[in-house]
Design a protein around this nucleic acid. Structure first.
Lengths: 121, 121
DNA sequence: GCGAATGTTCCATGATTCTCGAACGGTGTG
DNA sequence: CACACCGTTCGAGAATCATGGAACATTCGC
C-alpha cells in the first residue's frame, strides 16, 4: 500500500511514441484540455475542472487517451484526482513540440490583407 | 488554362488547422512519407517515389490527407506529379512544429538503467 | 490517334474512434 | 457503518478512418 492503490499506468519517458502523442493532441476536445492545463496557473487540477461541461465518462476517456500517450499524468489524491501536464518529459523526448503546439494559435484568418485568393490555385 | 488543369485544392496558410496537421502526422505511414520528403535532398519528388512499396491507391489517399491538412503540396508536372513539403507555410503558421516533429526521434528505449520505477510516483 | 504510364477517384470491407448513459469501486464524512 | 462524492470501466451506437482492388482521366511516345 504505497500511497494509494488506484494508480493508473503511465508510460515512461523513453517509451513515449511520437505518433501517439500527435494523435492524442489531434482531437480538438483533447487539445483544449491540454491548453487548459498548460495555461492555467495550477500544475495540478482535479478531473472535473477540465474539459468544461461534458459528461464525466467522455472526459475520463479523453484523459485516458492523453495519459496513455504520456501527455498528462493522473494521480489519485484522496477522493479526487490530480491531472497535470508532463512538460519536462515531453520536452526531454520531443524538444520544442509542446511549445509549438501550445504556441500562438488563437489567431485564425486574422490577416486583413490578401483580397486575392487566386494566387495559390 | 493557367499551367495545367489537374490542380488539386490546397488550403491557404491562414486556413491551416493545427489539429488537422497533427492528425495527418499522427499516422506512422504518413509521418514516414513526411520524413522522407524532409530528409531527401530533393524538394520535389514524384508520387511513386514516396511511401515505399505500397498500393498506389493507398499512397494517393495518404497524400490526399497530408495535402488537405496543408502539410504537403501536390502539383501536376507533365505525366507525373511533384510532391513537396510546405516547410515555410508550416513554419509561418506553427513555428517550431515541423522541426520538433522531424527532430531526433530514431531513439527508442535506449536508456538501460532505471530498474526502480517508484521514483515518479 | 493508339497505347503505355502515372496518379486520382470510386467502391467496399474491416478496424478505430468518439460519445455518453449506466454500473462499479474506492474515499472521506456524519 | 451507511451514505454521498469523484472518477473509472463497461457497453452500445454512430461516425470516421485505413486499406486496396478496379475503373477512370490525363499526358507523352510512337
Amino acid at each position: 500500500m504505497p500511497g494509494s492503490s488506484r494508480d493508473l499506468p503511465h508510460p515512461e519517458v523513453e517509451e513515449l511514441v511520437l505518433t501517439d502523442v500527435l494523435f492524442a493532441l489531434s482531437d480538438p476536445p483533447r487539445l483544449a484540455i491540454v491548453r487548459q492545463l498548460a495555461e492555467g496557473p495550477l500544475t495540478e487540477v482535479s478531473c472535473q475542472a477540465v474539459g468544461g461541461e461534458i459528461p464525466k465518462s467522455t472526459r475520463s476517456h479523453h484523459l485516458k487517451t492523453l495519459r496513455e500517450a504520456g501527455v498528462i499524468r493522473n494521480v489519485p489524491h484522496g477522493r479526487q484526482r490530480y491531472v497535470s501536464l508532463r512538460r519536462e518529459d515531453l520536452e526531454a523526448r520531443f524538444p520544442g513540440l509542446l511549445a509549438a503546439v501550445l504556441g500562438p494559435e488563437p489567431e485564425r484568418a486574422a490577416t486583413p490583407a490578401e483580397p486575392d485568393p487566386d494566387l495559390a490555385r
